[in-house]
Structure formats: structure tokens, C-alpha cells
């Protein structure tokens, strides 16, 4: 077992009154190479769950329970230990690649930075590796683009650079929080395909957080449905979508436009 979240509770301190609990005891396990989708609407706690897993909760938050990554509890790690885990064991992909990238640094240098810092690669070797990664995320003419600034790229290309940075240190687990929400649909499809291909090829586990059931359906093996900090249900993505066990999941599916959900209506469903 690789990642195991046990009875995770997260609450936020308020200026007045008692802290508010926003995640109420979530249990999740994720094996090597498995992909898990977490779906929910705003206020479901799905992003807080992902921040907790990366050890990135704000200072006003308190978490209880366990988040075991290869047996080590993220929640009890010092910031120093967390730094070693982030990037090397857990990679992150953010919703808005424009804010996740440094606007004044060439993309190749941004990918190479982590490689030089944590793997001690020479400038030359890191650049070669950055180029390989850009090729891997299918940036066309990567050799010409390696010295581009983020603003010179399209949204889809920036998100591919984001994926390349996340993969640079060969993490075991990748957490992607709404990675395609800011992108156009045609670009979203390309980025999802690249993400899917790479995690299966490299055997990386993936947690994909999205409000979009279509995105979840496309690349995850299992799905966790959350609502207001609680688990509604969890299971094989196919099962959850075709035979939802919980009323909330059914409500979520019925809120989808007809076009999107019509394919679900199989004789036995």
C-alpha cells in the first residue's frame, strides 16, 4: 500500500467562535499506479483534502487522523521533512498554470531548477533532462520552446509545463487539483490524454480532483464523491457512475446535461 488516509478531519480556526470542521473523517487508500478521482461541488472539502495530503494546509488549519505515505505520516512531519517529500514523492499540478509558474523565468530553467537542487544535476544535464521532459509532455518543437517565458505560451502548453515540473523528480504520487478547469475543451482533452498516458507509462499513482464528472470518468479507476466534508460514496468509477449507491451521487449525475449523461443509460442502469 502506498497512500492511506485514515479518518482525516480538518478544521479551520476562526477569528470568532469555535473552529469549523470542513473535512469530517475521510478514509482513502491508493495503490501504486492507481488513479483516484475526487469529485464534489464547492465547499465539499475536496481541495482541503488534497492540500492536507501535500502537507500544505494553512496555519489556521488543524488536522487529525493519519495520512500515511509509504508508512510515514504526513501530518506529523516537520516542514523540513515535508520539503523532502514534496516534489520527490508527491508531485503537484495546479488549476491555474499561469500563477503556478514564475512569470520571469524561462520554462526550461523552471523545470531544471528542481533537478539541480534536489538531484544535484549539472546545469547541462538538468537542461537536457528538461528538454526530455518537455518532449514527454508533447510540447511541439521543444528545443525551440525551452527558452520561452510562460506568457509566450498558450494555456494548454503552460499546463503541460506544469506537468513536466511535477514529473521532473519522478514522484510516486501525483495530485492534480482541477488541472483542466481553466482550459478550453479541446485543450482539456489533449492535456488529460497526456496526463493519463504518462501516469500509466511511469506507473505513478494519481489523485485527480475535479468538479467535472466527465473528466473524472475519463481517467480514473476509482472515485470518491464528497459533499460538505463527508464521503458520500467511494468505489470503482464505473460502478459509482453507472450504479450510484448514494442519493447525492444520483443528484450530481442528474444535474449533468443530457448529452453528457445519456451514454450512461444502459439497459441494466
Amino acid at each position: 500500500m502506498m497512500l492511506s488516509i485514515e479518518n482525516l478531519r480538518v478544521s479551520f480556526a476562526r477569528e470568532h467562535g469555535d473552529p469549523v470542521e470542513v473535512v469530517h473523517g475521510i478514509n482513502v487508500t491508493l495503490d501504486k499506479g492507481e488513479t483516484l478521482g475526487i469529485v464534489g461541488e464547492s465547499g465539499s472539502g475536496k481541495s482541503v483534502l488534497s492540500l492536507a495530503t501535500m502537507g500544505l494546509l494553512p496555519r489556521t488549519a488543524t488536522a487529525s487522523g493519519k495520512i500515511l505515505l509509504d508508512g510515514e505520516d504526513i501530518l506529523s512531519m516537520s516542514e523540513r521533512q515535508l520539503c523532502r517529500v514534496r516534489g520527490r514523492k508527491i508531485g503537484m499540478i495546479f488549476q491555474e498554470p499561469m500563477t503556478a509558474l514564475n512569470p520571469s523565468m524561462r520554462v526550461g530553467a523552471q523545470i531544471a531548477e528542481g533537478l539541480r537542487l534536489s538531484q544535484g544535476l549539472s546545469r547541462r544535464a538538468a537542461r537536457a533532462e528538461a528538454l526530455r521532459l518537455l518532449d514527454m509532455v508533447k510540447i511541439p518543437r521543444a528545443a525551440d520552446r525551452i527558452d520561452s517565458f510562460p506568457h509566450e505560451m498558450s494555456g494548454g502548453q503552460r499546463q503541460r509545463v506544469g506537468i513536466a515540473i511535477a514529473l521532473a523528480l519522478k514522484p510516486e504520487l501525483l495530485i492534480a487539483d482541477e488541472p483542466t478547469t481553466a482550459l478550453d475543451v479541446t485543450v482539456q482533452a489533449e492535456v488529460l490524454d497526456i496526463l493519463d498516458e504518462l501516469v500509466s507509462e511511469l506507473g505513478i499513482s494519481l489523485i485527480l480532483i475535479s468538479h467535472d464528472l466527465g473528466v473524472i470518468a475519463r481517467i480514473t479507476d476509482r472515485t470518491l464523491v464528497m459533499y460538505r466534508g463527508d464521503e458520500m460514496e467511494q468505489g470503482e468509477t464505473e460502478q459509482v457512475l453507472r450504479r450510484p449507491a448514494h442519493a447525492y451521487t444520483r443528484k450530481l449525475i442528474s444535474a449533468l446535461p443530457n448529452r453528457v449523461r445519456s451514454a450512461l443509460e444502459t439497459p441494466d442502469g
Binding site: 479541446t186 482539456q188 488529460l192 464528472l213 470518468a217 453507472r242 451514454a263
Partner: peptide, 12 residues
Amino acid sequence: AAEPTLEVIGRK
């Protein structure tokens, strides 16, 4: 074609 639908579920 790019619109994510629930036609095919799961990557396998």
C-alpha cells in the same frame, strides 16, 4: 468530440 462525456468510463 473533445467534450468529456460518460460514454467510456475509466482509463482501462
